[in-house]
Design a protein around this nucleic acid. Sequence first.
DNA 1: TTTCGGGTTATAT
DNA 2: ATATAACCCGAAA
Length: 653
Amino acid sequence: MAAKQCASSDIASVERVVNRWIVDYNLSLALELFKKQQFKDFNEVRDVLSAVMNRPVEATSDMPLKIRILQFLARINDGEKLDLGYDPDMPVSPLESALLILESMTEDFVIPQQDCEYAFHSLKVMIVATFIKNGKFDKATEMLNKHLMEPADRVRNILLGLISRKNKTSKNFCFQLFRQEMLAFVQRLCYFDVPFSFRAAQKLIAMRFEVEGSDGADENDEEEEIIPPLNPQRDPVPLKPCKPPIIQRSRLEAAYKALAEDEKTFVQLEQEVETEIQDVGDLHLELPSDSETEQNDLCQRKVCSPMEASPAEQPPQTNGGPQVQARLLSKQHYTVARLVTEPDSQFSSQYSTALEELETEAGTKNPPKTQDECREKEQQCPVSDDETVILTPKRPRRSKKTAGRAAARVVESSDSEDNLNKKEMREETPPSHPNQSNSRNSETSEQGASGLQDDYITPEKRPVKQRSTSSSGKKRSSGTPKQNPSALQEDCITPVKRPEKQPSTAPSEKKSKTDHNITPEIVGETSVTESSLESPPTTSPQQSVPQMSSTPEQASSSTKWKSLYKTAKEGKVTWTSDEVDFLQKETRCNESFRSNSGLKRRWTEEETQMLKEGVKKFGEGNWCKIRSYYGFKERTNVNLKDRWRTMKNQKLV
DNA sequence: TTTCGGGTTATAT
DNA sequence: ATATAACCCGAAA
């Protein structure tokens, strides 16, 4: 009897676990492809992911964030395809959609504010720039006013200038660089561990190599991989490669016990484990951006590796332990995140408490560990890291549409189902805990119902239909409205309408090869610069400042400006509405605004900052380079030098 | 042309 | 009135 239950649940559990591997692998793969700028492949992998997400997937603690990151990157990637829509409910451009995701990420996960602000700004700027490039100036203006309100923002002024001049040929906003920036940003948020499946595959390949003599090595091997899941009981998990991990796990357990008493040692333990893992993972794929995050590295591995370590055991335990920490994503990772947060406000409100409860109740081996780790990470890696799920509870967020929907639905379904473990769990731990249990349950049952095996195999087929996959995904979402979760995910990952990739891309891609996506230099052309005062004139020579037109050339810009400025002050000049507004704002903000017309113009904080960066970048004395690089249009080299001197006097530098 | 250092001037207090 | 940041000027490289 129990056996049967186990059997059936095992199948479902196994599928979840395997799907987790698949998802995990593809997440890493997608990132890698993005990194390598193989965008077509990236999109295909994204589609694969979205397809897999339709199946029940066991989520690891860091999966929600990773998925969100992928969604973010997918939108960034399609950023120039304005006709693409990711959210059927809200017809916004991909980048706007990315912005929404970023916002949700900041709410659901702990992200370093600095990184965050920078990413936000870049993204907002690119949103506007993209509209400009596509000649949608109205939209650009709307976005500008919506997202870039800071009048002192130099880039804002530049954009404003482009808009007013209807200039969509600016070379200052390089999408390519923007992509890289966003990539760097997300890489700082989460370490993409070497996927278990990747390691396993490598091992397998390596083994084949060794065993070369073996005949149908290929087939055998493959069988191993497939079979395992099917017969969980017998430790199928092939994965010989897993041996090492297993050890780690046991160690981890011991470590956790120890930790229970003294958390301080955790780091050490971690490192131990880490080193062990590395032995295995030394295969090191290039996937993990060897870049920065070493901390994350540690953190992440703990979370996942241990689990993979004993894949075979997973299924059975999954119900109890792993799940606690690793909720089932099933069809929606989003949900996962939300589940923790909103579904049961209870949890969200009492983040810490909930955690504790989790631990206790989870009382199980693995899960709690991960959680602990998470905390540890939090402490050690204040940044964002992985432990997203746990962190998630941080704040409930109802604002996000998706979140709301997902959460609601999940809750519903969850109640209905439930299963074995769950019931027990609930009874034991009434309020706080339920959240999690619910979350997983929901998915578990429903999907399990569907042809497990078929689906189970599906992932293997994935390469087959790339394009179709995406479309199918969409279909599903629409087809099975009730399964919001799944729908959500798909929507999130794949755009609603898929263009033929290359088409729209073309125009945008050409952009520029400037050093920065946003190069102030443009100023020269655009004539719009940070100082609103000066910029306006140049900006719209024709319309706004007729008088100015007489001196179209910027040759003696400084002197001209001076006089112009004076005139402007005297009210001799008439500005267009927008310009006026903008100008006025500026003036109000900076009374000390005067160009060289004999009056002194104080250095703004922004200018100062740029100067600092400039000196840092080019070295002191290279005022000319700094000036042109940062577009200090209305500052002369000498001005820069003087300012620097002043700063030194002030000991600001 | 660009950088540098000393001198001058506008501005804040 | 004074201090100082911003600006100007001429020399040097």
